[in-house]
Amino acid sequence: MSGRAAAVPLAVFGVLLAAAGALPLAAPFDPDAMPDTAALRVLPPLSTAFRVARRDRPDVWATAVTTRGDVLILERAPRPLEVKLSDLSAPVESRTFLLGTDQLGRDILSRCLSGSRLSILVAGAAVAVAALVGTAVGTLAGAFGPRLDAGLMRVTDVVLSFPRVFLVLLLASLFSRSVTLVVLALGLTGWMGIARQVRAETLSLRAREFALAATALGARPARLALRHLLPNALTPVLTEIGLRFAGALLAESSLSYLGIGVPPPQATWGTIVADGRDSLATAWWISVVPGLFLVATALAVGAAADSLRRALIPGARR
């Protein structure tokens, strides 16, 4: 294993985990707050708005403010408002909504940063489930003889044949929506590739000298599997997991877009894209922006996993 080459992708994974924790904290606004929906709704990216704190109502916003004597004229939907300077409880504040606002006047950037946590955690948990199931199935198939192997591979084929979305659809129709359901549904439909990988590794390791030696010494298959084969098979699994993470992230967002993902009001990038679906012609940024977050994250993780694989497996094909 080339230590230095592996360090960079591992660092990316670490950054990702830290991001899941820290990104929501970087949000400039409260992601769920709707201070003034009428005035702030569907503002395009890079819009500036002004917060006018009135004594009786601290959150009056306007898209433009002009003064006329001792009165402020606020330009805002649905109609302009006049506020006496003497009624202000704080100076007029100007804020920029870098990525625009949605139909409820919530800041899209803050929602995307806050939604990153659930998106990343769900994808991570789904991959963990897939890894667990896949490793178990693969090891059993590779270590315990051809009959179990054939049976398990048949099962793998069956689940592989299933279009994943339809399988999740069926599960979503039978059970009530929850984060757990999404994690299980994704995990239980995504383990097949890992299982195959582990099985292949296990089979090839079994044929190698140390395994033959262990068998000669009288080791039982189970012991062989656990003590010797599994640890060696894990290396390719780790890279596979990295590749799967990006896939799980995109899959979760697809489910949320279809309305069979995490239940509202929890937000992931996929649900935010779905929010903007009916306003695509007029407020395209609501759907487009969270997608950029998705693409960037999936790309970063995918590239990291790719280079990790190349670092760990000498002479591996691209």
């Binding site: 769920d32 707050a33 709707m34 929906t37 139909q103 409820l104 309305g259 509202p264 009001p265 929010d275 009916d278």
Partner: peptide, 16 residues
């Protein structure tokens, strides 16, 4: 009712 986006937003507004 799900599938009624406007009502969903109204519900979130009422929540607020």
């Amino acid at each position: 009712n799900v599938e009624n986006k406007l009502r969903e937003r109204i519900a979130l507004k009422l929540k607020d």
